[in-house]
Design a binder for these strands. Sequence first.
DNA 1: CCCAAATATCGGGATATCCCTGTATTAAAG
DNA 2: CTTTAATACAGGGATATCCCGATATTTGGG
Lengths: 159, 159
Amino acid sequence: MTSASTPVIGPSRCNCAALRKASRRMSQFYDSVLAPCGLKSTQYAMLTEIARQGAAPPTIRELAEVLVMDQSTIGQNLRPLEREGLVALVQDEADRRSRRITLTKVGRSRFAAAEPLWRVAQERFEGGFGRRAAADLRAVLGTIARDPSLADAGEGSLR
Amino acid sequence: MTSASTPVIGPSRCNCAALRKASRRMSQFYDSVLAPCGLKSTQYAMLTEIARQGAAPPTIRELAEVLVMDQSTIGQNLRPLEREGLVALVQDEADRRSRRITLTKVGRSRFAAAEPLWRVAQERFEGGFGRRAAADLRAVLGTIARDPSLADAGEGSLR
DNA sequence: CCCAAATATCGGGATATCCCTGTATTAAAG
DNA sequence: CTTTAATACAGGGATATCCCGATATTTGGG
């Protein structure tokens, strides 16, 4: 009898696959907790970063860099938020190529409403995983996210 | 100590965001190394799992469970692989609701061609990150990926 | 000042990923 | 054996994510 009830996720040796599986599971979890406020984990992460900048609204490029995303991805992902009036893109007067991403009043309100839910997700996860373990894991993940040798691996052969 | 007045100016404390950023960076890296063989990291991961099953080709549901993906995602992602003739879906005779995913000869060949590139990515990452650290990280990520409390978090309240 | 290079973004196209709802098939209840 | 529930997918719709190539703007060199 194949154990259909408890499938072993598997001792895959692939660092990338391991990271992606965990990332999908974690996203499932945060998405399910955030669902009542109508924001996905990606949207919450973007709003967090935009709110954190506060006085100096980031450009698409800056936001992409911080969130380890592609510029086009940011542009696409901003569309639903813009459509719902949570963010507004205003052309930078100094450099008119750039558009700075600002939180609207509605955006700040929706973000504030989402924050308690995010805290619930944080508490629930760290309650099981360990607060210290979570902090350690975030630190390790941060070194990976910022590692320039991973980021620039495919840059040289293109230009 | 949640400083209510002072805005947090540091690395994000969100476990989900940290995981997703690292996952995107790692995917960038593996994708860039795998690019010459025409397979994305997700596709390579799917082929790996299909190949690992060998004699017992998995169903869409089984593959989804092992890879921590949605069934629809697997179905969608199989389409390009099927179109290129790397995999074939054959209806299970015992349970005709199921379709078992098998590697074709072409699929096995493409997978074999991709494997050395995957090894390069593994070596390059672990060379910088540490072989031991990578194994430890994979173990931690595995516990997250198969954590039932994360998986079932939003299941009870819906049906 | 003019032109080439760099920068910031946009647009199209493709895959990836989820949700929800339907359909076919099987298994279980009565 | 018939109705019902559960299971396995398929399809549509939406967001997420990347790449590539095009456009607008700025900047630096001559």
